[in-house]
């Protein structure tokens, strides 16, 4: 699936947030979309880059794509649970 094919239903800017807000906001934010829809999450924090995939595994959601634009990493996360 390429970035252009993904329909994003919600964008969340999680750059520079204090611990553990990126994951807290993400886990709440994903509930705002329907199962099968996608959230785009933006971050610059190294820990968050490892935390998101770990969170997706434990929460049963799926990271369908990861993109980098300059310093900013974009996760496309599909709500599965």
């Amino acid at each position: 699936m390429s970035g252009e094919d993904i329909v994003v239903d919600k964008v969340m800017d999680l750059k520079g947030m204090p611990c553990p807000m990126p994951i807290v906001k993400m886990s709440k934010g994903i509930k705002d979309v329907e199962i099968g829809q996608v959230v785009e999450a933006l971050t610059t924090d190294p820990g968050a880059l490892a935390d998101f995939p770990a969170w997706a595994r434990t929460s049963g959601n799926e990271i369908v794509k990861t993109d980098q634009e300059g310093d900013v990493i974009k996760f496309y996360i599909m709500r599965k649970a």
Binding site: P46, G47, A50, W55, T58
Partner: peptide, 21 residues
């Protein structure tokens, strides 16, 4: 549980972390 998962499957997350660093 997210922290524990990271410990269990570090190899899956390493590259992302190193990119961020």
């Amino acid at each position: 549980d997210t922290s524990i998962e990271k410990g269990k499957s570090l190899d899956l997350f390493k590259e992302n972390f190193l990119t961020g660093i």
